[in-house]
């Protein structure tokens, strides 16, 4: 009878093993091998890790990745929260806005990339034509600045709706009595937001921030289709760098090591943000 709990856990354990543990351990194994096509793999210890950490291209890609995710978070979270607060609370407008918001989320990543690719093409694209009209020469294939903000705009267009939906659900769950109590206290709109809406949304915002952080850190298909990582390597993010290393450059061992480093960076940043947000505004909120 003692084994019975394990019996119930078995299906889940098997699934997680096949989908997560075994691949992860395989990657750990690869990361310590030198794996080149046509040669016998041999053990090289931490050599791959050292090589990657010393690689300028890796550091540059990591830097870009951090900046990109930071920009994504500081625009999408406030924007999403603001839109969620502006959305109608009841009536026919609710369904309409939810459908409108849902549309970008329904489109697959690479299709989003293709849509924006067409949108920004210098010969037939609407965006360059529109900028031309204002006297700005938009050049996604040669201007780093244009490439960057276009990738960013694409991500905001694609993923802000997710933040809106999460926040909207959270806002709907705040009892109306909180707002009445704040009103009776003569709290200003800002203070009502600061002391009623924000604290009640804390859990929901943690989820939104972590989801967007992890997702934006893994961004691959959209910039790959839109800019191909260029101009030069100016929009090459960590995932693009890793896949190039492993598949394009046939260096499986080094690719595996990059994946592991990548994995630990995502976990570390997520963990730090989670802890910080969990303690944010707790107890010390005396700044009335």
């Amino acid at each position: 009878m003692k084994q019975r709990p394990w019996l119930f856990l078995l299906p889940a354990l098997l699934l997680v093993s096949i989908s997560a543990f075994i691949p992860l351990i395989t990657v750990m194994n690869y990361s310590q091998l030198t794996l080149l096509p046509g040669t016998e793999p041999y053990f090289s210890g931490l050599e791959n890790f050292v090589a990657i950490l010393e690689d300028e291209a890796f550091r540059a890609a990591l830097g870009r990745q951090v900046i990109f995710s930071f920009l994504v978070l500081i625009t999408e979270i406030p924007l999403g929260l603001g839109l969620a607060m502006a959305m109608p609370k009841e009536g026919p407008g609710v369904g309409l806005s939810l459908v409108l918001l849902g549309i970008p989320l329904l489109i697959p990543w690479n299709v989003v990339g293709i849509i924006w690719r067409v949108f920004t093409r210098s010969d037939i694209g609407v965006l360059p034509a529109a900028f031309d009209w204002f006297g700005y020469s938009y050049e996604i294939s040669s201007s780093t600045f244009d490439a960057w903000w276009t990738v960013l705009a694409m991500d905001i267009w694609h993923w802000t709706p997710l933040v809106v939906l999460i926040c909207y659900a959270g806002i709907q769950a705040i009892p109306e009595e909180y707002y009445m109590a704040a009103k009776i206290d003569r709290a200003s709109p800002w203070k009502t937001f600061r002391y009623v809406t924000l604290p009640n949304l804390r859990g929901v915002l943690i989820i939104a921030v972590l989801l967007r952080l992890m997702d934006s850190f893994k961004i691959y298909a959209e910039p790959f289709v839109l800019t191909g990582g260029g101009p030069g390597s100016s929009t090459t993010f960590l995932s693009t760098y890793t896949s190039r290393m492993a598949i394009g450059g046939f260096q499986m061992g080094r690719g595996a090591a990059t994946s592991l480093i990548y994995f630990f960076i995502v976990i570390l940043i997520s963990f730090v943000i989670y802890i910080v947000m969990l303690n944010l505004g707790q107890g010390a909120g005396g700044d009335q």
């Binding site: 009892p175 009595e177 909180y178 109590a181 206290d185 003569r186 709290a187 604290p199 804390r202 009335q288």
Partner: peptide, 21 residues
Amino acid sequence: EFINYPSLTVRENLASPLQVS
């Protein structure tokens, strides 16, 4: 429902109606 400002301590909650008065 027990309606208090969730991020403020009990003391701050009590003081809040007076502070904004």
